[in-house]
Write a protein that binds this DNA or RNA. Sequence first.
DNA 1: CATGAATGAGTGTTCATTCAT
DNA 2: AATGAATGAACACTCATTCAT
Lengths: 222, 222, 222, 222
Amino acid sequence: MTCKRADNQDSKSCFSGEEGFISRIDRQDKYQRILRAGITVFAKRGVFRATISEIAREAGVADGTIYLYFKNKDDILFRFFEERTEDIFARFRAAIDGADSARDKLARLITCHLEAFQEDREMAVVFQAETRKIHAMADQVNEISARYRELIGEIIEEGQAQGGIRKDLYMALVKRFILGAVDEVISTWVLAEGKYDLVSMAEPLVDLFIRGIGCFSSEPNA
Amino acid sequence: MTCKRADNQDSKSCFSGEEGFISRIDRQDKYQRILRAGITVFAKRGVFRATISEIAREAGVADGTIYLYFKNKDDILFRFFEERTEDIFARFRAAIDGADSARDKLARLITCHLEAFQEDREMAVVFQAETRKIHAMADQVNEISARYRELIGEIIEEGQAQGGIRKDLYMALVKRFILGAVDEVISTWVLAEGKYDLVSMAEPLVDLFIRGIGCFSSEPNA
Amino acid sequence: MTCKRADNQDSKSCFSGEEGFISRIDRQDKYQRILRAGITVFAKRGVFRATISEIAREAGVADGTIYLYFKNKDDILFRFFEERTEDIFARFRAAIDGADSARDKLARLITCHLEAFQEDREMAVVFQAETRKIHAMADQVNEISARYRELIGEIIEEGQAQGGIRKDLYMALVKRFILGAVDEVISTWVLAEGKYDLVSMAEPLVDLFIRGIGCFSSEPNA
Amino acid sequence: MTCKRADNQDSKSCFSGEEGFISRIDRQDKYQRILRAGITVFAKRGVFRATISEIAREAGVADGTIYLYFKNKDDILFRFFEERTEDIFARFRAAIDGADSARDKLARLITCHLEAFQEDREMAVVFQAETRKIHAMADQVNEISARYRELIGEIIEEGQAQGGIRKDLYMALVKRFILGAVDEVISTWVLAEGKYDLVSMAEPLVDLFIRGIGCFSSEPNA
DNA sequence: CATGAATGAGTGTTCATTCAT
DNA sequence: AATGAATGAACACTCATTCAT
């Protein structure tokens, strides 16, 4: 939880006068503590039912302190995903780049996706359950979805060029088809309170994406 | 979808001798007006931000009147979906029963699903965006999802028996895979503010479910 | 419960055309039903928590009907005690007049008082618990208390004249002393949910009034 | 009676170095101000008609501030009597312990009781008028009454042992007889808006308790 | 007369946000 | 920078009262 924070501190301000360094550390620390406390409370109570007081208590700071770091409750949510989005897409990129075939890339993307959510169940709860509303976070979530769909699109197009993927695809739909299925699988896992291994769903899912459920479909990667 | 309301409104202007009849109609009418107003406001503002006053204004009744018909704000949402669920699943059943092959059944189910949501965009907005939370409505939405997955399961098993559907499927995953994809397609349409024809997505979606995106997969229904 | 009502009807309008008779009976009946329903609900819920709707339900009439007979909720309470006060004081007078000595008169008054409350526990609950407030019913309760104290005063003065009662008494205080003690005994009985015989408290109470709790006091009536 | 409040107000203007001290004082002060404002408003309007807003206005705080110190409206009433009960019973105990004979103890108890209520007329109004209901505060008031009756019982039993008090007494009744009489005397004084000296009623009352109103009763203490 | 659906004023309570310390 | 007490706007919900039928 605090490891990432440390990383960020480093990358932000490498050296500085002791005082400033410490206080910036403190600042970062408190910022991250509030961020995490927010997600914890959002996951537990739901974004709307969560109160600033409870987040402050969870973070071990005073109510007013929240406002020194964040504009308001929604801002905590926003900034959390803003930060995590970068981390996670970097991981996605790395995963994809390490594979050759489109099928493999897709498998690695989805595996990485499921890993990221399995690693941080609170984030998963909040993202799946709370940010799906049209009325809040919409822009941010849409942007995340769009970036994700771009990755899928990239993989599929590469696959089409390489020959492993059908060419007669309605791309916009295919992207939603994949994203939606992965999403639902994560939501189910969240609702099941994480009682089983989410990452193990990746391969069977990819199989369904590639071969579908119909008979007589030969394995395309063979 | 709006048939009930239309009926009631028609009969309002009907002559009738019996007092009880008229008042029952009035009651039904007001009940339905509040139900619809609730969904309208929930769709516009979000369930949490919606206020009883705004729903009452939208329905053209006084605030207190809401409480003559509903226990509280959540009850409006609950009763709406309770009622619609029966309608819609009856339509689903009829659609499925009118088809022979598993593929056709699946196509009809999904078409019917997309039709229902396209017919009532407000309902779609609320269902997709607001009832996805873990913390509220969970039981009701879960039950709806479960019933939907049962239908999918039934179709797939029939298809496996008939031979059109692969037998090596992880059923629980397949159900989610289909539901999730359909769901995402609806959500995308909702976010796009219904600017295109949702129902036309049914056939391409089913094609993806059956054949997947991989090459060399022969058309199973052929 | 309804017997008294019948009496009143008779005394109000003995004969009349069938229609008018019946309707006046109906009116009286409904009036009395509401009155009783009011006391029942006041006793059960407390005057403030009682709602017009609940009284109407208890009386078997519509909410609006209450307002054809009573100004408002407090008016039900007021009229109930207005009516009962006359009944009860008539019984008090009869009881007193049937006795000779002051001691006997006091005993009969108190016995009659306890009887009246024991007969109608709902009334007792409401009178003891709900009308004791300074802010409502004050005038009416004060008047009832004053009339009661007058009776006591009358008895005591007679007793002083006859010689059975001390002459060195601070009358205003003595009246409260007796009323307060009787009152408390009734309240206790009410709180005990009427599990014992209230009337049997009359004699021991009178004994305390007359002899006090000190030793060496010879029985004055001897 | 008002001592606590006075203390706090005094110390408010005191200088003090410690932050914590001041804030604790402030807290106590505000708590006491709300408590007092509550009783003032309850006395003026009645507990039910009193609104949080009016109490807040009377206390010079915002509505929401009330809820920083009290659970709800009833809690103000409850805490007030909780606190006062201890004070007052301590005074009762001290009063009783300073006397020898049972008669004297009883006189001191009643004097102390009347003093306490005379000192704080608002409390007297609320206690006499508002807490007498069966439906609210019942437990607290019953407990207070029970403690009071215990004191009376203790005194009487001692008197019986010493010989000043009759032995043929129905104790449960005697306790109510005394409590009821004192109570009524206080209620009368409250209703008379405190226009006369309540404490002067103590001696005549005790005289009535001991000697009763009958003739030929010799002074037991003589 | 009787009804009971409808009204909307009124209130307890919550909680995001501010600001003096 | 940090605090957390105080604020007061906002909202759900109740219920006495009215009035069209």
